[in-house]
């Protein structure tokens, strides 16, 4: 798995590439947590367009960070999930905890609402 992070205007963007499992989830956690230390942003959008696979270790990263982001009034918006990854999110109900959208434009618009 590879992650890249980018700060754009009022948001933080994390791109995940490849497969997230127990070997790589800590790296994803560190990438998403960077947003908590970034001033003047509304949240983090997570580009999952090239995310091929995610196990519970990766889902746990989204769950474990939800509260800290909420307390700082920041949102986490995953977008571009393939069918299999989206179905994995749905199996544990993460689609109810996070608003998942299809495109980056939708994610940015949602963050700026």
């Amino acid at each position: 798995m590879k992650t890249t992070t980018l700060q754009e205007a009022n948001l933080f963007k994390v791109t995940i590439q490849g497969e997230v499992d127990a070997t790589s989830s800590l790296k994803l956690d560190q990438a998403i947590k960077k947003a908590l230390d970034t001033p003047d942003i509304k949240g983090v959008i997570v580009d999952c367009k090239v995310l091929d696979y995610i196990s519970s270790a990766g889902l746990g990263v989204f769950i474990a960070n939800h509260q800290d982001f909420k307390e700082q009034n920041l949102r986490i918006i995953p977008f571009g999930l393939n069918k299999q990854v989206e179905s994995t999110f749905e199996l544990v109900g993460l689609n109810e905890l996070f608003t998942i959208v299809s495109t980056e434009e939708e994610a940015v618009a949602l963050l700026n609402q």
Partner: peptide
Amino acid sequence: LVSQRKRGSLG
């Protein structure tokens, strides 16, 4: 899990 900020237990 959300309130405890737990990364595990879902497997």
